[in-house]
Nucleic acid binder design. Structure first.
Lengths: 115, 115
DNA sequence: CATCGTTATTCATTATTAAGCATAACGATA
DNA sequence: TATCGTTATGCTTAATAATGAATAACGATG
């Protein structure tokens, strides 16, 4: 036994079939879009490239048959990005999932103490 | 709702402090070492470079204060790689962990059907 | 119908990671 | 003490991923 603590960690995500659908990163991006109404601003706040953010949203919208975000270009403010009801639902689901996963990890971590 | 099935997936591993200690890949490597008694043969069977395999074992042995594998060079067969009792214990722990994680994933996957 | 800030997309560049080559060190055995 | 297959380790190259510049398209508004 060492003085260093062993800890169980992990990542979870949701697949649609065999293709990655959403994970923590995309959920965070969805939340930022909801907050800011702009994909560009959301990507800036998350310190990721707009290119990557757009690609993720685009993929997310295509993988499943329901869009999570609707993007409009042009108009008064140049364009907007808005979350759909389905997008909101996915956020809720993933956050609950994440919460349960944290409990799982804590429980498993406790079990491997004193190895 | 789409005809494509949503499924919760994920990965887990064990950290020693903030540093990655073991995950599925390293566990698989440990099992191969136990089976073959050779790091080189184990790396070949896993289709990974010996360089990488050695690096992983080396790191694993250093991160915690107990070695999981003892490597000997020279001798009749050129050298041997043998698992320590601690190494065996870690395999057991991680496999049990993995089993429980699979149950967790299945349970969570069922919960998100019919979204 | 010009403006503006956004979405949409390509492409060259950079950064990060992995792979593979080369070679020394080792020590039981014959 | 020569041999052999392994461990030990640096270094070069290849593969992959991420970044960022550049630019077109868009449409409500004034």
């Amino acid at each position: 036994m060492s003085n260093i603590e062993l800890k169980v960690e992990g990542r979870i995500w949701i697949n649609a079939g065999t293709i990655n659908f959403v994970g923590d990163g995309k959920i965070h991006l969805l939340e930022k879009i909801k907050e800011l109404g702009s994909l560009r601003k959301a990507s800036l706040e998350m310190k990721m490239s707009y290119r990557q953010a757009w690609g993720q949203i685009n993929k997310m919208n295509l993988v499943y048959n329901k869009p999570l975000v609707v993007l409009h270009r042009g108009g008064k403010d140049g364009g907007i990005a808005e979350l759909t009801a389905f997008g909101e639902k996915i956020i809720t689901i993933q956050k609950e999932l994440h919460r349960e996963f944290e409990l799982f990890l804590d429980f498993q971590s406790k079990k491997i103490q004193n190895v």
